[in-house]
Design a protein around this nucleic acid. Structure first.
Lengths: 362, 362
DNA sequence: CTCATATGTGAGAACGTTCTCGCTAAATTT
DNA sequence: AAATTTAGCGAGAACGTTCTCACATATGAG
């Protein structure tokens, strides 16, 4: 029944009494074959338990029907959802998914991209960990490997990209807080990479309303920018002491920094956390400080994580369409793989402010 | 600099003025080569931007350095963590990861396994969606493809397996509740597949203490068994009305069923939820019912999800070593791929009861 | 000096497919 | 009736590697 050794197309051909070419035609579904031989071959294949070797096929067709993904960390709900979105459309189109983690470390990302390229993926979806140095990605482009960026852009790399409209999303959230009467609003953001001149320089520029090249900013910087814009629009000053930088993409970092803000002399009445991880860290800190939400502190988070809906009170949050982002990215990539030749597209997806009970009116 | 077309080993050989065999030797790092030629070849490869084609290599070596994973749903924190564990050891050993979702649907799982097998993965890690019908997995074994099962077993399929010791874990949690004075303890479990005779027959058998073949039980049934054993050990009767079956692996199902229990005439004083998804659904329901934990209801969950630690009160839970499970599975698989030939091993990992504040002493 | 061993090299087969070509026979058009 | 097209099939060349072999050359032992 189940054969001990794998059967090749030649074995099937021999068993069916035809040439490998004919066997290949019926098994591969290309070219002409008579009904009679088709049945013979199919029966022989069935008996031998023939399973096509995708490697050999890919070697000659030049396509693997596999797409490579470099995510930051599969375990992170953001990436997990994005991946699921990618997986959905990949699967629907008969594509496999080769997934790696970069941990937001450039060297790992380079290594991953190299691995995936060697495995001859038909295209890549990457969340670049460095928005400037990206030789490996430029290199891919010059080799003609389709590439789609998620969540972040790379300066000078003109490729398809899908991201959240971070500035608008943050601006909306912060204006919502201001509309509720809040005047001192804290923000806790990752802000991992030094923008030229650092946080202070960025703040003074942004507060002054200087034009800022925001496209290639990291998402957390974009969200900070939205925070600042909301203040400017509403005619409110920005107090730099209210802008908290975690400095790394970790909940612990957020958790450690929040207490400084809340135990200071003039604490904020509302807090805005700029992504799921920061939200989690902040929640840990607030929980330990035994602060009541929203009585002691109003809160708007970023990313709609499971617990935010059943937490009491419900957490008002900016929901990114994570699944849809993954799906959009995969669809764009598949179009490129099919050879469609648009100019590079940027899809900015709107985030939705989900109102729950974590914001008090002052 | 960056070449427009991909260079093959033959191109490199030509440029270096050696044979493809020699070029292959230095590039592939096998056999003898003189220092002089080695340098020539390396330089030529550098100039041409040579990137080895893993497909061609795999076709001849018969190994792809890729392992396939069939998970239920990447988006689910349980699978996300397990996957991360797998990824960690795979990456450390230079293996790639081909990941698919089965959504716990048998037909999708079969399809995934077939896809991965065609792509010639060196081995598979699967969370089987059906513990009985698994022809595709038996088939893999007979073809000599290494296979490791996670979380569940398949009747009659003797392969390496890693899972949580669900019975012991549930027993410990429920005994903990009993020790705290609880006498009416509800359980909300998935229990998706009809065990022979259904839930009632299972209950009567288990309560009577009949020997039960527990190895191939689905995790939720095992945890129910642990719940029953705890009652038996402590000399407490099991009230079938307290055993809630969600019937599907979804938070919504759990959310819908919990209110029936809590608004009944004789509600439990404590609740045990048997996995992360059930916990989430139950929390939703409890939140809507505005029940205070632990004053109105004590609670022990399964799986240590992020929010459980900063929820107020903290949620006491049975923490599965999800990451370690993935790592263990990957390590076992790699051993098999290397050709090590033990008899099939089952690794039952202990879960840890994390005490927080969701259990009241009566 | 001869024989064995280690080091180095290239020609060409192999891996399992798809693809190109040439050949037949039948069907259709001119 | 001749000319073309179409269906059907097989031989054998690709794809880009690794691997096996045969053959050098150098080194050292006896």
């Amino acid at each position: 029944m189940a054969p001990k050794t794998k059967a090749t197309i030649a074995d099937v051909a021999r068993a069916a009494g035809v040439s490998t070419a004919t066997a290949g035609r019926v098994l591969g579904g290309y070219g002409y074959t008579s009904e009679a031989k088709k049945e013979q071959v199919l029966k022989a294949a069935q008996n031998l338990g023939y399973r096509p070797n995708a490697l050999a096929r890919s070697l000659i067709t030049g396509t693997t029907r596999t797409i490579g993904v470099v995510a930051g960390d599969i375990q992170n709900p953001f990436y997990a959802s994005v991946l699921r979105g990618i997986s959905n459309v990949a699967e629907a189109n008969g594509f496999g998914l080769l997934i790696t983690n970069s941990d937001e470390v450039q060297s790992k990302e380079v290594h991953s991209v190299e691995l995936l390229a060697q495995k001859q993926v038909d295209g890549l979806i990457v969340t670049p960990s460095d928005t400037r140095r990206a030789r490996h990605l430029h290199n891919l482009r010059s080799m003609g490997v389709p590439l789609v960026l998620i969540d972040r852009a790379v300066a000078g790399l003109m490729v398809d990209r899908v991201a959240t409209d971070n500035i608008a999303a943050a601006e909306q959230a912060v204006r919502y807080l201001i509309a509720a009467g809040h005047r001192r609003i804290g923000i806790v953001a990752e802000l991992v990479d030094e923008e030229s001149g650092g946080l202070n320089a960025f703040l003074t520029h942004a507060i002054a309303g200087d034009p800022i090249e925001s496209e290639t900013l990291y998402p957390s910087w974009q969200r900070l920018l939205g925070y600042i814009r909301a203040h400017r629009i509403e005619g409110l000053p920005v107090d730099p002491r209210l802008t908290l930088r975690a400095g790394s993409y970790s909940a612990i970092a957020a958790q450690e920094i929040v207490p400084h803000l809340m135990t200071a002399s003039d604490p904020p009445t509302a807090l805005f956390t700029t992504d799921g991880t920061m939200s989690e860290g902040a929640m840990r800190a607030l929980s330990e400080l035994k602060l009541k939400i929203p009585q002691d502190l109003s809160l708007i988070c970023f990313d709609d994580l499971d617990w935010m809906s059943f937490h009491r009170p419900g957490i008002t949050t900016v929901a990114q369409p994570r699944l849809a982002m993954g799906e959009a990215a995969a669809r764009m990539l598949l179009e490129r793989i099919r050879g469609e030749d648009y100019p590079p597209r940027t899809v900015l997806m709107p985030a939705e402010l989900v109102e729950r009970g974590s914001v008090a009116r002052l």
